[in-house]
Amino acid sequence: MSTPVLETENLVKVYGRGPAQFHALKGLTFGIHRGESVAIVGKSGSGKSTLMHLLALLDEPTSGVVALDGRPVSKLKPKVVSALRNETFGFVFQQFFLNPHQTVLENVTLPLKIAGVPRAERDRRGMGALEQLEMADKAKNRATDLSGGQKQRACIARALINNPDVVFADEPTGNLDSATSETVEDILLNLQREHGITLVVVTHDEDLAGKCQRRLIMQDGQIVDEHTGVLPAGAGRQRRAAPHGASRPRRRILPFGRGARR
């Protein structure tokens, strides 16, 4: 296989001090290859979100190394890390985090705005990304006017706009019904296959996890198991009856901003 785009070595994250210390990650060493789709699966508290935050350079490990393209990044300056995140990563969140005061297009082009791309080019690339997700007709709508599936597609467009090497998806289907979930899953995996984007998904959803090429099963801050190979669609569907599936009570959809407080 090609060189790993993301690598970790003996990754440890400890929260708190003294007797209240909590070891969220207990020394993880693994690699994610370019163009691969990886699902990090586990119960809540297993450390999967912490791991994603460390991989996405949103947090710093207590000890150990995260390397991007073979280059350790843990000790880089915050400004450099911010720029790396902006250029290299795309993010899809469970709660979408679309700005209700802005149009869909403005939301989608936010990473380019942060990168300092001029407006005309931003809008052009934004429209391109929206077209790819069949959302071009919603470009001028307010983000709040969209349905859940449309919101998540807008989020995916936002994650793709800067042509990232790696897209991190944190429970991307957690707020969607099962039919919409399936569409979003297919979009994400198609993008990964067709554009060679590395996809890192954190999920409870075993159906989504089954569609990924590799699954890291986490428990108590350690990777306890690793499966390779896409599972047949049916296998995922049967497991769907598990407590973490669609039958789980839906969380309320909360966009940030003023609307969130109502």
Partner: peptide
């Protein structure tokens, strides 16, 4: 305070402290 999440998103998407 109201825009905490918006700030979080901008920082996650690579906006520097200074900006």
């Amino acid at each position: 305070q109201e825009r905490t999440r918006e700030i979080g998103l901008m920082k996650a998407l690579g906006m520097s402290r200074a900006k």
